[in-house]
Computed example of a mutant assay.
Amino acid sequence: MDAPAAAQGGCGNKHIVLVHGACLGGWSWFKVATPLRAAGYRVDAPDLAASGVDPRPLREVPTFRDYTQPLLDLLASLPEGHRVVLVGHSLGGVNVALAAETFPDKVAAVVFLCAFMPDCAARPSHVMEKFVEGKWLDSMDTEMKPQDAEGKLPMSMMFGARIIREKFLQLCSPEDLTLAASLLRVSSMFVEDLVLQQPYTKERYGSVRKVYIVCTEDHGIVDKFQRWMVENNPVDEVKEIAADHVVMLSRPDELVRCLTDIADKYA
């Protein structure tokens, strides 16, 4: 894939960190990470805990911070003065929000890609609770079940073949659908833990520049709910891509152009 024209020449040491959503892994970014690196950007696409090739089972990841720790470790390892563009997809929006709260000085901008976006007024679980309360998504064949009899661990979640095909990857190729179905892992929304956390602060998370990328053909986190989150927590810029929920597989070229524009503007 050719490097996008917008990214050719002069991207310097700009660093983009791509954060996957629930049940996915760093692998989901392969169509985006490859051309970004070819264009000269530094790109990381870490596996969060119990995701991708991370060896831990979900039961060993009891909290959302534990789940996010690989991302937090990556940011902690960066030298002073080094700033990244954080991109969170779907549930990954809450991961990048936590990362920005923890390391605001290391974040040039946070990009929410058809993602859950917390505000600074309510607990981090609030947007997901509103999503469930509003019945914005038919769970179809998603399997949700407790991990332990005592209920101390968060509810596990695994997407079924039908919801993947009809709600998340409806614009993807049959090959990408097959790949995703073979690589998904049991995950969690960690709502039980997030509901106990304090809101992210205006001084830290609230101070970081934010961009929201609306995917207008998303049947998972639908367009209208994405725009409600932006109204609820205004951002510096809104961009649009005519894509389904797993935009990095269905519309990678458009997403690469979008991310290079953002990196060149904010980083």
Score class of each variant (00 low, 15 high):
Leu171Lys: 06
Leu153Ser: 11
Met140Gln: 00
Leu153Asp: 14
Ala121Asp: 06
Cys120Phe: 04
Phe168Glu: 10
Ser125Asn: 09
Phe190Trp: 03
Arg185Leu: 01
Met155His: 06
Lys135Gln: 10
Arg123Val: 02
Glu133Trp: 07
Leu184Thr: 07
Ala161Pro: 11
Ile164Ala: 02
Gly134Ala: 11
Leu171Glu: 06
Gly160Pro: 01
Val132Arg: 09
Glu150Asp: 14
Trp136Phe: 14
Asp141Ala: 08
Thr201Ala: 06
Leu169His: 14
Lys135Glu: 09
Pro199Ser: 06
Tyr200Asn: 09
Phe159Asn: 11
Lys202Thr: 09
Leu171Asp: 12
Gln197Asn: 07
Glu129Gln: 04
Met155Lys: 08
Leu169Ser: 07
Ser156Met: 02
Thr178Ser: 09
Met155Gln: 15
Ala181Gln: 08
Met155Arg: 10
Ala149Glu: 00
Met144Thr: 14
Phe190Glu: 04
Ser182Arg: 12
Ser139Phe: 13
Met158Asn: 05
Leu153Asn: 03
Pro124Met: 04
Thr142Asp: 01
Asp148Glu: 00
Arg185His: 02
Leu184His: 02
Pro199Gly: 01
Ser139Leu: 15
Leu177Lys: 13
Arg123Glu: 10
Ala122Val: 14
Thr201Tyr: 08
Met158Thr: 08
Gln198Arg: 12
Val132Trp: 09
Phe168His: 11
Thr142Ala: 08
Leu196Ala: 07
Leu184Met: 15
Pro174Lys: 06
Leu169Ala: 05
Thr142Trp: 04
Glu129Gly: 00
Lys130His: 00
Met157Cys: 08
Ser188Cys: 01
Pro124His: 15
Pro154Phe: 03
Leu153Tyr: 13
Ala122Glu: 15
Met128Pro: 00
Ala149Leu: 08
His126Glu: 01
Met140Trp: 14
Ala161Phe: 07
Met155Glu: 02
Leu196Thr: 07
Val186Tyr: 07
Lys130Ala: 09
Asp141Gln: 07
Thr201Gly: 07
Leu184Pro: 01
Gln147Phe: 07
